[in-house]
Design a binder for these strands. Structure first.
Length: 470
DNA sequence: CTATGGCACGGATT
DNA sequence: AATCCGTGCCATAG
């Protein structure tokens, strides 16, 4: 019934137009963004209230329904192909288990402020008191990637201290937890990480040189030029590149453990909070998928009944304002519901169709288009597009992947390609690979193989080494 | 001559 | 309507 309202083909009445427009606007927000938006509205609109706290009695998490949350309630009979879906109206608890004092506290701080104080706490003990101000100032000028936005000289000038002193503070900051945080550039952040890493782990030779002198080459996968530049073998460069993308993070402020392989400088999407987490019960691949959808304020936001009542009694000067507040509130609540149900339906469908992919990895992705899914769910294509855009989910292996990966047309082929190359005896040419893929049922042109290789950062055949020729 | 990468075109997707 | 993606053609490197 509600879905039909999302069809633009249906002619819409004024109310539904607004409804539609706002629902659309809400759907494309991530959980984190939505939370902020609702908070803002909540602050200035007295007609809204949060009817709080239904807790799951076992894990103490806030949960939209009464009773045990599904994760704590394994007794209900599960069917493998029926994913368990539940909606969490708050998503901040996944970062830290809440303790009592925090629970009723203010809204969670912005990630940025969080980072600053987090770092400051770590380094404060090691700082002379008079340097703390400097540190605080530096930390307040981090961008969302955890990089320093302002030049050091400016800090020095601001506090009338020698640059060297500022530098030593920065150095301290850089070695605090998100290692490399506070660096002026991704480059330097990575150098610091490399340095720290090298104390306990072996790191490839010349990795520092590669970062220092050829970062742009490295990020563009131009390994040949890079090899020439620092005078080493191409396969060494390849090793370095792999090591770097596996172990270093050019943007220390971004807390993601996701898959960053596909290039670290091509502005990777920011994965902070996933919009959903998919797990299995007891990590057993034979159990149904448990999908936890983070939909801020779902089920706990409502129109304040007292307000509704009051508006009838106090029908005087401010009625206009009150009325608009009320209708805004109603609209928001409605749209929020709409958004939640749409996303839940989307996730349920994905969990069913892509179960194998979620559990077993890339090569099991069933290619699908947003359009086809839209048809199945009986919503407009753009609804799916918006719902998918900019969102990310955490899958059971711990990776955070963009939701759009579920609609990657070529992922299957690319993983097949990767496998072929990994198992190859001697370097295969693109056309040879094309034929091999054909045998596996993937029909791709030779030119396309080349493109996929590039996407995966794999060198052309004449530059690949057969196993070990160091 | 073979293998690749760049450019650009057209169809599919969003 | 805008964008993405696979592909063909051609120049270039080896």
């Amino acid at each position: 019934m509600l879905q039909t309202q999302l069809r633009p083909s249906t002619q819409l009445k004024p109310l539904t137009t607004a409804h539609l427009a706002q629902t659309m606007a809400l759907i494309e927000l991530t959980a984190a963004e939505l939370e902020q938006k609702v908070q803002a509205e909540l602050a200035k609109n007295p007609a809204l209230e949060v009817k709080d706290t239904r807790h799951c009695p076992v894990c103490k998490r806030q949960y939209a329904e009464n009773g045990l949350c599904p994760r704590c309630h394994p007794k209900v009979s599960h069917q493998l192909d029926q994913p368990i879906i539940f909606v969490s109206p708050r998503h901040d608890f996944i970062r830290t288990p809440r303790n009592e004092s925090e629970t009723q506290d203010r809204e969670l701080q912005l990630a940025k402020e969080d980072l600053s104080t987090y770092v400051l706490k770590q380094i404060a003990p090691e700082l002379p008191v008079e340097d703390r101000q400097i540190a605080a100032y530096i930390l307040s000028n981090l961008d969302e990637d955890g990089l320093l936005e302002i030049p050091l000289v400016e800090v020095a000038r601001y506090y009338h201290v020698p640059i060297s002193r500022v530098e030593s503070v920065v150095e301290l900051i850089q070695h605090a937890d998100p290692i490399g945080v506070g660096s002026p550039s991704p480059q330097e952040a990575m150098l610091v990480q490399l340095d720290v890493l090298s104390e306990h782990h072996p790191v490839p030779l010349h990795a520092d040189a590669a970062i220092r002198e050829g970062l742009d080459l490295l990020s563009r996968h131009q390994y040949v030029e890079l090899a020439r530049l620092i005078g080493i073998q191409v396969h060494q460069v390849e090793k370095i590149a792999r090591f770097i993308s596996d172990n270093l993070n050019p943007f220390p402020g971004r807390a993601f453990w996701g898959d960053i392989r596909s290039g670290f400088s091509d502005n990777p999407p920011v994965y902070t909070q996933p919009d959903a987490i998919i797990t299995t019960i007891d990590n057993s691949p034979e159990s149904p998928l448990v999908v936890e959808v983070f939909s801020p304020y779902a089920g706990i936001l409502r129109v304040n009944p007292l307000f509704r009542q009051a508006i009838e009694e106090v029908s005087k000067e401010n009625t206009e304002q009150w009325k608009s507040d009320l209708s805004r509130a109603e609209l928001l609540v409605k749209c929020l519901q709409q958004r939640t149900t749409t996303i839940v339906r989307l996730m349920r469908r994905l969990a069913v169709i892509q179960r194998e992919f979620i559990l077993r990895g890339d090569q099991f992705l069933r290619p699908q288009t947003r359009a086809s899914l839209a048809q199945e769910l009986d919503v407009h294509e753009s609804t799916i597009s918006r719902a998918v855009a900019n969102k990310s989910v955490q899958i059971p292996n711990g990776h955070i992947i963009p939701l759009s990966k579920f609609f990657d047309r070529s992922l299957q082929v690319r993983t097949a390609l990767k496998q072929i190359i990994q198992e190859e005896k001697s370097p295969l040419s693109d056309s040879a690979i094309s034929e091999l893929l054909e045998e596996q049922g993937y029909s791709v042109a030779r030119r396309t193989v080349a493109k996929y290789r590039a996407m995966e950062g794999i060198l052309p055949s004449h530059l690949r080494q057969s196993p070990e020729t160091v």
